[in-house]
């Protein structure tokens, strides 16, 4: 399981995420984003769903873009279905595409305490790279 830290940004939220693999990075990044939104998480997984996120044609080789579209997909599911991603089984990460079976818990506004509404994952200062030791690292700013 990867790790994340929040870095200071005057108006928004900056996240530094590390994972042992790209899959681990994507999972940890998802947990990091939802950790900014929720103080209480759902108790259990209620929905298992296939999640597919694809980069725009022309940006297929861009891992940073892949991270952004992955997080955008999860934020979309939260806003439209109140689904909180809790478990992850990656089915494949190819050029410009990530596929995973995600276990979602249900967010209930009357039961779960919240923190920030994340509007978007921005491209400002966005960086995703692989360290010499093979670990992956991402740095990005959320608009809140």
């Amino acid at each position: 399981m990867g790790t994340f830290t929040v870095f200071d940004h005057t108006a928004d939220i900056g996240l530094d995420v590390q994972g042992r693999s790209l899959e681990d990075l994507l999972e940890t990044a998802a947990r990091a984003v939802f950790d900014q939104m929720l103080e209480d998480w759902p108790d259990k997984v209620e929905v298992l769903d296939e999640v597919r996120a694809a980069a725009m044609p022309g940006l297929a080789g861009d891992t940073a873009e892949l991270l952004v579209v992955w997080l955008q997909e999860l934020l979309y599911r939260f806003e439209t279905g109140r689904l909180v991603p809790m478990t992850f089984e990656f089915g494949g990460i190819g050029p410009g595409e990530v596929r995973a079976t995600v276990g979602f818990g249900r967010f209930e506004p009357c039961r779960h305490r919240t923190r920030l509404a994340v509007k978007a994952v921005t491209y400002h200062g966005l960086d995703v790279h692989r360290e010499p030791d093979g670990a992956w690292r991402a740095r990005f700013i959320l608009d809140v």
Binding site: H9, D12, H124
Partner: peptide, 9 residues
Amino acid sequence: IHWGYGFPI
């Protein structure tokens, strides 16, 4: 003005 993303706020 303060630090935004792209444009400053």
